[in-house]
Simulated scan of single mutants.
Amino acid sequence: MRELQNYVQGQTIYIPKRKEEYNAWGSKSGGREALKRRNTSILEAFTGGESIASISNRYYLSIETIKKIVYGKR
């Protein structure tokens, strides 16, 4: 403790977690899995013949976002 006080007296310091303790985005809340399911549904609707505009309205997403999902990397 005294050694730290030699360098940062009365200041706030940040000590990050070790890399092995980090969680991937959405892994705890389930957000990543929910987006994956949504995007799969969007892709299935598109391959089933539904228009991009219709999918955009149904999911409340922009047409550009739908295009990224259906034409993006698979």
Rank of each mutant, 00 (worst) to 15 (best):
M1F: 07
R2L: 09
R2Q: 15
E3F: 13
E3T: 12
E3L: 09
E3M: 13
L4Q: 02
L4W: 09
L4I: 14
Q5A: 14
Q5D: 15
Y7D: 00
Y7T: 08
V8L: 02
V8F: 13
V8C: 07
Q9F: 06
Q11E: 15
I13C: 06
I13T: 05
Y14A: 00
Y14F: 02
Y14K: 03
I15K: 04
I15R: 11
I15V: 04
I15Q: 08
I15W: 06
P16R: 09
P16E: 00
K17C: 04
R18H: 08
K19D: 14
E20Y: 13
E20P: 13
E21L: 06
E21F: 01
Y22W: 13
N23F: 15
N23V: 12
A24N: 11
W25V: 13
W25S: 12
G26N: 01
G26M: 05
G26S: 10
G26Q: 02
G26Y: 06
K28D: 15
S29N: 07
S29Y: 05
S29L: 05
R32A: 10
E33H: 10
A34V: 04
A34R: 14
A34T: 01
A34P: 02
K36S: 08
R37C: 09
R37Q: 13
N39W: 03
N39G: 01
T40H: 05
T40I: 03
S41V: 09
S41L: 15
L43W: 05
L43T: 09
L43H: 02
A45K: 07
A45N: 13
A45I: 07
A45V: 01
F46K: 04
T47D: 10
T47H: 01
G48Q: 04
G48H: 00
G49I: 12
G49Q: 01
E50Q: 12
E50S: 03
S51I: 06
I52K: 08
I52N: 03
I52P: 01
A53N: 09
A53E: 13
S54Q: 06
S54V: 02
I55K: 01
I55C: 01
S56D: 08
S56R: 10
N57A: 14
R58K: 14
Y59I: 05
Y60M: 13
Y60I: 08
Y60T: 07
L61S: 05
L61K: 10
S62W: 00
S62K: 08
E64A: 15
T65G: 02
T65H: 11
I66Q: 06
I66V: 11
I66L: 09
K67Y: 03
K68V: 06
K68M: 07
K68F: 04
K68I: 05
I69T: 02
I69Y: 00
I69K: 00
I69R: 07
I69W: 00
Y71A: 01
Y71L: 03
G72E: 05
G72N: 00
K73L: 15
K73E: 15
K73S: 15
R74T: 11
